[in-house]
């Protein structure tokens, strides 16, 4: 989910805001997020799991022949209709689970706290 292509440093670049700061070396694990050395790595396993949860309802509902029938009925509703209503709730639950997973995969930082204590920071990073 992270940017695959790292932004190129282009011609005419005026690194005004990074004066005096050398670009950070790439992370050894290749998880170089946004040229920022102080981002904790993203938990890719959790992100993939979240992606799977999100794809499930899309596949289920695009597979129309799997539910294009009238039996069994539920409270007078043919299967075709109550099955799709059921997916409203399933999809909502799966989306929420995916949301929790992405939060866990990429921990939030609260403002004012150091992002990764001990990591050397440039002059503009100090407060």
């Amino acid at each position: 989910m992270t940017g695959v292509v790292v932004a190129p440093v282009t011609r005419g670049s005026l690194p005004r805001m990074t004066l005096g700061q050398n670009p950070p070396p790439p992370r050894p694990d290749g998880n170089n997020q946004g040229n920022n050395p102080d981002l904790p790595p993203t938990d890719r396993g959790k992100m993939v799991a979240a992606g799977v949860l999100l794809v499930i309802p899309i596949v289920a509902l695009m597979w129309v022949p799997s539910y294009a029938r009238t039996e069994p009925e539920l409270l007078g509703f043919p299967f075709f209709f109550w099955y799709q209503f059921l997916w409203v709730f399933l999809c909502s639950g799966l989306t929420y689970a995916a949301y929790r997973l992405t939060l866990a995969a990429r921990p939030r930082r609260t403002p004012g706290t150091s992002i990764a204590p001990g990591t050397p920071r440039g002059p503009e990073g100090d407060r």
């Binding site: 932004a7 997020q33 939030r108 403002p111």
Partner: peptide, 21 residues
């Protein structure tokens, strides 16, 4: 073309200290 965004831009949140700064 030239890209004015960096990968961090795509995952930045409003309360990130760097964004605040």
């Amino acid at each position: 073309g030239e890209d004015e965004t960096i990968p961090f831009d795509y995952i930045a949140d409003a309360d990130d200290p760097r964004v605040q700064k």
